Computed example of a mutant assay.
Amino acid sequence: MSLVEVILLAVGLSMDAFAVSVCKGLAIPKINFKTMAVCGLWFGGFQFLMPMIGYLLGAGFTGYITSITPWIAFVLLSLIGGNMIKESLSKEEEKANDSLGVKIMFTMAIATSIDALAVGVTFACVDVNISSMIGDFLNTTLASIIIGITTFIISCIGVKIGNIFGLKYKNKAELAGGIILICLGIKILLEHFNII
C-alpha cells in the first residue's frame, strides 16, 4: 500500500468521524476553534490508535494465513465500505448531541474508529510501503499517523460545516468514504492476481 493509497484510506476512514462531527456542529450553537479541536483530537486520536491495535493483533496470526491475506483485506475493506454506503442511504436520522463530555466523546470515538481496527488487521496482511527505508511496524505507525491527522482535520471541518450547513453533506461523505474503501479492497485483490 503506497502513500497515495494510505491517504485515500485515511479519507475514507475519516468519513464516519466527519458525519458525527457534522452532527456535533449542528447541535452546538456557538462553535470556536477549541470545540473543533476537541472533536478532532478525540476522533483523530482514536483513528490513529485503532489501526495500531489492529496491526498488532493481526501481525500475530498473519504468518499462518499468508496465502489468503489479500482476500482478508478485500473482505474487511468491502464490509466496512458497504456498511458506510448502507448508512449513507438510510433514512434514519441521527440524534444530535451537543455534549463534549468524556463519556460521550469516548463512546463516539470508539464507534467511529472500529473500522480502523479492522484496517489495522489489513495492514498486517498487506505490504504497507510508505518508505522503503523503514520496516513494517514503522510504516504502519506512519500510516496510522496519517489516518489520525487526516481524521483530525476532517473532523474539525465537519464541526464547522455542521454548524453552518447542517446535515446536507453527511450522507454524501459517508457514501464517498464507503466507495473509496471498497475500491481499495478491490485494488488489493487485483494486485494479488497481478491484474494491475
Rank of each mutant, 00 (worst) to 15 (best):
G45D: 08
I80D: 05
F106H: 06
G148I: 09
A96L: 15
L79E: 06
M133R: 01
S113M: 03
A116P: 07
T122K: 04
P29L: 09
L76Q: 07
K34I: 13
S132D: 10
L77F: 06
A73V: 08
Q47F: 11
A59M: 14
M133Q: 00
I80Q: 06
I65A: 14
A73P: 07
E87T: 10
V128M: 12
T151Q: 03
S132I: 10
G63M: 02
K103M: 08
E94V: 03
I53A: 10
F33V: 05
L57G: 15
W71H: 15
I68G: 10
L100R: 03
A59F: 12
S155Y: 04
G25T: 03
L41C: 10
N139F: 09
T122A: 14
T66F: 08
C23Y: 11
L49R: 01
A109G: 03
T151S: 02
G25L: 05
Q47Y: 05
I72A: 07
W42G: 08
S78M: 14
N129T: 06
L77R: 09
I72W: 00
G58E: 00
I104H: 11
D115R: 04
S88A: 15
M52I: 13
M133P: 00
K103D: 07
I53Y: 13
L79G: 13
G25D: 04
F137A: 06
M84R: 14
G158L: 02
C125G: 04
I149A: 04
F46Q: 05
Q47I: 10
G25I: 05
L49G: 08
I161L: 10
I153R: 01
T107E: 12
V102I: 13
G158C: 00
I85Q: 12
A59T: 13
I145S: 02
D136A: 15
N139W: 04
F43V: 05
M105V: 14
I28K: 00
F152G: 07
C39R: 06
I134S: 00
K95D: 14
N139S: 11
N129D: 08
I153P: 10
L117K: 12
V38W: 05
I146G: 06
P70Y: 04
S88Q: 06
I72V: 13
L49W: 11
I157Y: 04
N129Q: 12
S67F: 01
S67Y: 07
T151Y: 00
L57P: 02
C39V: 15
G54S: 11
G158A: 12
K30V: 15
D127G: 11
V121I: 15
I31H: 00
T140C: 14
L76F: 15
K86P: 04
S90E: 07
G148N: 03
A59H: 12
G120H: 09
T122Q: 07
Y64V: 11
I65W: 12
G101E: 15
F43L: 08
V119G: 03
E94M: 13
N129K: 12
L142M: 06
I85L: 13
L100N: 09
E94P: 03
A73I: 04
I53W: 09
I153E: 01
M36W: 04
